[in-house]
């Protein structure tokens, strides 16, 4: 079961990950971080396919992708 961890202290609310997610399961929070940004969050972890596109497009390396057991990676990076 893949999952995504977004470090909200690194997130600057640029929303590029939200656009990049093919499953459309990322969205911006309503609260702001200490830096004053709305941070990205996953609102439906069950549909995450661990494709890493969000993490790859994040300009601030704020997203970690991990999973349990076997995961088929669609492309090498």
């Amino acid at each position: 079961m893949p999952g995504v961890v977004i470090d909200k202290n690194h997130c600057k609310g640029c929303e590029l990950c939200v656009k990049a997610c093919p499953q459309k399961i990322l969205s911006m929070s309503k609260e702001i971080t200490l830096r004053g940004y709305f941070y990205a969050q996953m609102h439906d972890p069950s549909r995450c396919i661990g494709c890493r596109l969000c993490a790859i497009t994040c300009p601030d390396a704020a997203i970690m992708v991990n999973h349990h057991g076997q995961l088929y990676l669609l492309y090498d990076y």
């Binding site: 790859i56 970690m64 992708v65 999973h67 349990h68 995961l71 990676l73 990076y77």
Partner: peptide
């Protein structure tokens, strides 16, 4: 199973 990180 163990947690493997595929991106960090």
């Amino acid at each position: 199973q163990s947690l493997t990180t595929t991106f960090t």
